[in-house]
Structures are given as structure tokens and as C-alpha cells.
Design a protein around this nucleic acid. Sequence first.
RNA 1: GCGUCGGUGGUAGAGUGGUCAAUUACACUUGGCUGUAAACCAAGCGGCUUCGGCCUUCGGGGGUUCGAAUCCCUCCCGGCGCA
Length: 457
Amino acid sequence: MRPIRLDIEKEAPRSGGGLDARAGVLHTPHGDIKTPAFVGVATKATIKGVSSAQFAELGLQTVIANTYHLYLSPGEEMVQKAGGVATFMNWSGPTMTDSGGFQVFSLGTGFGKKVSKFGQSSKSEEGKEEETQQENDLLRRDEWEPNSSEERSPAAERKNHPLPTQYDEDLATSHGKLAIVDDDGVTFTSHLDGTMHRFTPERSVEIQHKLGADIFFAFDECTEPTATYEYQKEAMERTHRWAKRSVAAHRQNFDANNTQAIYGIGQGGQFDDLRQESARAIGDMGFDGFGLGGSFSKKYGDNSLQSALNMLEFLPKEMPKHGLGVGEPEDLFLGAAYGIDTFDCVIPTRNGRTGTIFTHQGNINIENAQYKHDLSSLDPECDCVVCMGSVATGGVGFTKSYIHHLFRTKEMLAPMLASQHNIRFLTRLIDRIRESILDGRFDDFRDSFLRRYKNKQ
RNA sequence: GCGUCGGUGGUAGAGUGGUCAAUUACACUUGGCUGUAAACCAAGCGGCUUCGGCCUUCGGGGGUUCGAAUCCCUCCCGGCGCA
């Protein structure tokens, strides 16, 4: 008996130009999740700026923590000792953990720099970019030499050794970071103290068993969406091999098998044939659910999510599907239209912390000068405690002026209130998407919502 | 009153004959943020511009010099010390 089960209550065939949207309930050992659902991102066992005591009030049914981060601190043993990630963070509801595969991608490529894996620097802004350009050159895969440490030859001599690893060790360590992918796993340095570590699919599963979430993900390699076909294919195939090992490792653990579900992650970049191949492969491995892998930031083009979604057609319908890192309002509609059941995304909290507020009339930057004198709530149509108030505030919500002031004066309450509002904005949006699917008016709701949201009306 | 140190762009504070429309930080203005090394990052921040430059700026005024925020004189203002 599998630990989770998805009951699809209602489908909206070919809704929104997609596949079949559906509304249902995902049953987990720690409670039911009405789907589609927005999953709060609690990377280090905390949604930044939001206490677990507020989750329910904000409409959160579940949260997702991260294997990489919790492994580094406080360590999976400590989390296990605390009773698992949910108990550790004083949350009684369902939880998920991500495998750490994304960190291989985001840490390894030179986080925060305009560096891409294969030398496709996004912009070239003279001067400053020189160093980055050099890094790009160093990052070229065909310059990598295997079996590094001892017999590594100078960069110039490496060109004749085309091999699967995508990072230059010298470059990586010079930045205090390292992520070397080989077929068995990934060796990396901690971003915290530079110490070396290694993840394999089995190790990731083992850690996630100790973290004890209801749902966890197989260790994958998240590629740069703009990577070449050749590399996407190679990384995808590696991810598939890792996926197979992950399921096997999980099924061997009888206890974990009864209490935790494992999702496999599909990759393939923006190539339809790879995406299709990945869906069929992952869908056929006996996973309890599916994670839509990739990175869907706008910087990779407007179509990166759409192209990934097409793969869902090749998966078993009844399989629960999760959109990893999908959370822009437009993307929730798009994902839901393709049958995604759960979504996680840092956008409400990251945007909230940095002053961008979701409203029904489009996003606003609350730090803008114009809000200094604005005594209205963040969004007059929002039902969150920040906007509507609570018993504690006498039923009166916070004003834009006040939150603007908190940001300007760098008060810690500022990002907290903004994050809470943004989270509720998305959980309410997804709730209404769910209702619209149940009521058979998904397309209407989508159109009316997005018309105002996108046109800032 | 005498002596002394100092007055630089919104603020603090570099610069001390040309590479200075003036380092830097903060402030300010505006962007950005999609499986979180992000309470972060980026751009702009005297005026005009055909984007090549042009004009006005470093307390006021006057000088020296090919050239001054930088040197000299003088006035004004401030800190400190002595009367």
C-alpha cells in the first residue's frame, strides 16, 4: 500500500489550451492536501519570515524543505532525532523534501553571476564582463579533464578530453564552490564552510528518509534550460539512471516505504523529444508521483515552462504531479491547465522580502515613493491577515504606507508581512483555481483573473 | 582680537595642479527576482545633447597657470586654543 493516494474529483478536459486540469485530494500520512495546491518553500525547515503557527491561517497545506540545506545544517541525524522535518519545525501537516539536485545546478554554475554552464553568457556588458567571460570559457565542458586531482593537465591541454563533467574544478574552488557531476553522483563543497561532500542517489534517499517528509524527490540533475541538446540528453539520461537507483534504494527500506512517497523528476530542457522520452522513462519506474524538473525563470525565455509541460501528456493520468519551482500566477494557471497537482515556489517569499507585492491588479513594489502616503491595504481584494487584519489587530489591516515605512526603515516585520500576504495571495489563487475546476469555469476564471493581473487594471 | 585647523555633490567623507562632473558609502529614483548561498541584486543619481560632445559645479570674490576642487590673496562661515 502506497503512503499517498491522489483522488481526482473533477477534471476539466483540455482546459486553458492545455491537457486536462483536475481538482482532487492528495492523501498523505500527515493529512490531506486539496489539489491543486501551493506548497510553501521551507528550504531550511522554515518559510523565511513565516512561523509554522501561521501556515494554516495563510492557507498553506504543506511545505517543502531541502535535502542539501538540512544535510549541511543541522544534519539529517539531528532532524531525525527531532522527529523529522515536520516535527522539527513544529508543523503537524504534510511535508515534502527536495532532493538537492537543484543545488547542484544553482550552486555549481556560479550563483549570482552571469555565467551559464556552456559559455552562453546572457549579456555582455563590456568591462565588467571580462572575468565572467573567462569563467565561461573555463566552464566549457569540452575543456574538462577527468580524474582531476593528480593527473590534471593545464587547461590548454584539456581540449581533447570531452567528458561528461561540466565544471572546471579550479574555477569552482577558486570561488569556494564546487560541483562535479560524474555518473555515480555529485561531489561538491559546502557553500557554508567549503568542506567537501558527496551526494549519490542512494545517499540523497537515505538523507531524505531521515528527514522523514511524506513526499520526497529522487536526486536529479537540473540543467540550465538553455543548455545544448547534447548536454540535456546526457544529463537527462543520467537523471534517469539516478532515478532508477533512487526508487530501488527507497523500496528497499520497508519502514520508509510505508510512510514516505518518492517522486521522480523529469528533465529534458526545452526539447520536446527529450521531454517526452523523460516522461515515459520516469513514468515507468514505479514512482509514487512525478516532479516537473527544470528552471522556469523568465531569463530562460517565455517558453521554458510551456515546453516542459508538454511532457505531462506522456505520463499516467492518475500519477500525482508536482511543478518544481512553478509559482508565478500565470504559471499556476498554465500548470493547472496541464494537470499539475502541487506547486512549490520561492516567489511569494523572495519577492515579499524584496518588496514586490502581489495584487489582483498586478505586482507593485511597495518601496516605491508613491506608496509613502497610501493608506489603503496592499490589495483591497485580498483576504489575508495583513490586508484584512485579525482579532489581534482589531480587525484592521496594515496599510501600504505602514509597510512602505517598515521597508524603508529596514524593519524585520516588513519582509514578514509582505511574505505572508504574498503566500496567501497564491494559496487563495490556487484555491480559486481549484473551485473553478470543480465548477467547470476554469477558463473563465483564468481569463478574468489574468486580464486584470497582467494589464494592471 | 590673535593663533590654528577646516569649509567638496542630499548626507558622511575621498581627492589636494592636468587621467575630476569629481573615489566610496549611505540616502534617493527605478528595475529585477519561478525546485532560495537572495532581509538580495542591478541600473541611474548637475543640466542639455544630433550621444560625438557642450555648458555650469568643489563657501564668496579676485589672482597665478596652457590648465585649479587642488597654489596665492582677500572676504564670509565653523571647530579648537589663547586673550
